[in-house]
Design a protein around this nucleic acid. Structure first.
Length: 292
DNA sequence: AGTTGTCAAGCTAGT
DNA sequence: ACTAGCTTGACAACT
């Protein structure tokens, strides 16, 4: 069981998510920014290794505008050695990597243009992971997408468009249940049509479910992963106090987390902690596992 | 140096 | 018909 956190480390004074305005795009600016991001990513992963945090989600801004038409620069070959170095480092130490494109990726969109842009964005993500030389266990997680007034058709469209994706992208793609539209049950239906693994988000499941018990839900999602996909992934978060329902907690409640681990005991996952204070909560969780 | 409005992309729900 | 919220950081223009 690996513990991870997403995109940002607030302890080491750099971020791998530098971007800039589209209006100020230039090849020079682009190269400088990507170089800066990769250098920081390297630092983050070294910090993680020292602290036994063996799972990390790389932010989508690592290569800004990578899927935008403005970017014609061949960043994959230009940064090939740097990506490879990072990939070698993570593989050497058995660290897990994932990515999570944002809400604009909708492969079940009705408009063909949106589907095309989404496919390009997915291809950008998989090119990063491929350039690092990572195995099929380095995943790209997305939500199923919009409902467009008819969930059954939207799911059909997802399945149809999914089959049109290139093999390299398909191998990395997993779907996550969300908190408003696509429940675990919906995701399992998509899985039956496509074989895409289901990444279980336990906090979203609290917000939207079909009365499955937590352990039952976890088992159902776990079953959708094949051996070559690596250890099944799971997103963990908690409700923020005094915030709207669905808001992520500022810091992990280690007692709640311990209880959660007891509920899923005997079922192995790599767990991503979607908690605002990032590596700080991850450190607490790692400590808990060590002591337990 | 610090503050504030704005940023590639889209959906849904509420007014 | 229109907009806030998602979830939130980081840039960039302005004090």
């Amino acid at each position: 069981m690996k513990i991870g956190y997403p995109c940002i480390n607030s302890s080491i004074g750099c971020t791998a998510n530098h971007t800039f305005r589209l209006a100020s795009y230039s090849e020079k600016r682009f190269i400088e920014t990507v170089a800066e991001n990769i250098a920081c990513l390297d630092k983050i992963l070294r910090f993680n290794l020292e602290n036994n945090i063996m799972f990390f989600r790389i932010g989508s801004d690592l290569v800004p505008f990578a899927s935008h038409p403005v970017c014609t620069f061949n960043w994959v070959s230009f940064f090939q050695k740097d990506f490879k170095k990072i990939g070698d480092f993570t593989k050497k130490h058995g660290m897990r990597i994932s990515m999570h494109p944002d809400q604009f990726v909708l492969i079940n969109a009705i408009k063909e243009e949106i589907v095309q842009k989404s496919v390009s964005e997915l291809q950008y993500h998989r090119k990063v992971l491929d350039a690092m030389g990572l195995d099929q266990d380095a995943k790209i997680q997305i939500h199923v997408g919009g409902v467009y007034g008819d969930k059954a058709s939207a799911i059909e469209r997802f399945a149809y468009n999914y089959k049109l994706l290139d093999t390299k992208t398909k191998k990395r793609l997993v779907i996550e249940n969300d908190d408003r539209l696509y429940s675990l049950k919906d995701c399992l239906e998509v899985h039956r049509k496509t074989s895409v693994p289901v990444l279980f988000d336990c906090f979203h499941h609290e917000c939207l479910n079909n009365n499955e018990s937590l352990r039952k839900a976890v088992l159902l999602a776990h079953r959708t992963w094949k051996k070559k996909d690596g250890c099944p992934l799971l997103d963990y978060s908690e409700q923020a106090k005094n915030k709207r329902s669905g808001a992520h907690a500022a810091s992990i409640n280690i007692r709640k987390f311990k209880k959660f681990l007891e509920v899923i005991s005997g079922i192995d996952f790599d767990i991503m902690l979607e908690i605002k204070d990032k590596e700080k909560s991850a450190l607490k969780a790692v400590q808990l596992l060590k002591s337990g």
